[in-house]
């Protein structure tokens, strides 16, 4: 089960509102490489995993991603608090505002609502871990792109942190792949799918 802790993983204190920036950052809330998809991917993949270190790692990273989802929600919320009438007309934010006011909704920056089609659960150890490594890289690039688009130091400080977590998670999934392969047929790691076949 999950128990809520009333704090963020990393401080989010955005002094200046900026609805246009919020309309870009929302993509890491509900976009194709966002934190919601990351968390759901890992927490869903773990059921088929045959090895304890994979069950553990997917549980622990999937849980951390939920904390990141909360941080992105906090950034979007703080960037859109107490908006003026002029600010809600900001190009790029007005289309979000008309549907959601200043509620935080899981959507891509493009306006496409969160879709589980952006992630995969294949039920195969090597396929799922390969997906996870790619997912961490795609999230890392999205944070790179946010850093290119944002001039707000309060926001960038948090984005830097989240981006570095993707790098660390990539390393751990890569190591998990090695641990899994060590348990497979060394002459042919594709001989069976250990998440389904009995060795």
């Amino acid at each position: 089960m999950f128990i809520y802790e009333k704090k963020l993983q990393y401080p989010v204190k955005i002094k200046n509102t900026n609805p246009k920036l919020a309309s870009v950052i929302i993509s890491q809330y509900g976009g194709p490489d966002g934190e919601l998809g990351a968390s759901l991917r890992y927490l869903s993949q773990r059921y088929a995993m045959p090895y304890p270190e994979l069950k553990g790692l997917l549980t622990d990273i999937g849980t951390e991603e939920l904390g990141h989802l909360e941080m992105i929600g906090a950034i979007v919320h703080q960037l859109t608090r107490s908006l003026t009438d002029d600010q809600i007309r900001t190009a790029g934010f007005d289309t979000y505002f008309v549907d959601r006011t200043t509620g935080v909704y899981p959507t891509a920056a493009s306006g496409f609502p969160y879709s589980a089609a952006s992630m995969a659960v294949k039920g195969d150890v090597i396929a799922d871990l390969s997906e996870d490594m790619a997912a961490e890289q795609k999230a890392r690039v999205t944070y790179d792109n946010i850093l290119r688009l944002s001039d707000d130091p309060d926001v960038n400080d948090v984005i830097r942190f989240l981006r570095e977590r993707e790098v660390v998670h990539f390393q751990r999934f890569g190591e998990a792949m090695r641990l899994a392969k060590d348990k497979l047929d060394q002459k042919n790691v594709y001989y069976i799918n250990p998440a389904f076949d009995k060795p």
């Binding site: 944070y143 790179d144 850093l147 290119r148 942190f161 570095e164 977590r165 790098v167 660390v168």
Partner: peptide
């Protein structure tokens, strides 16, 4: 830095 390990600290060139 977002990591405990200096060896894994690999920041982006923009707004480091």
């Amino acid at each position: 830095n977002g990591t405990l390990f200096p060896g894994l600290n690999l920041p982006f060139h923009v707004k480091v």
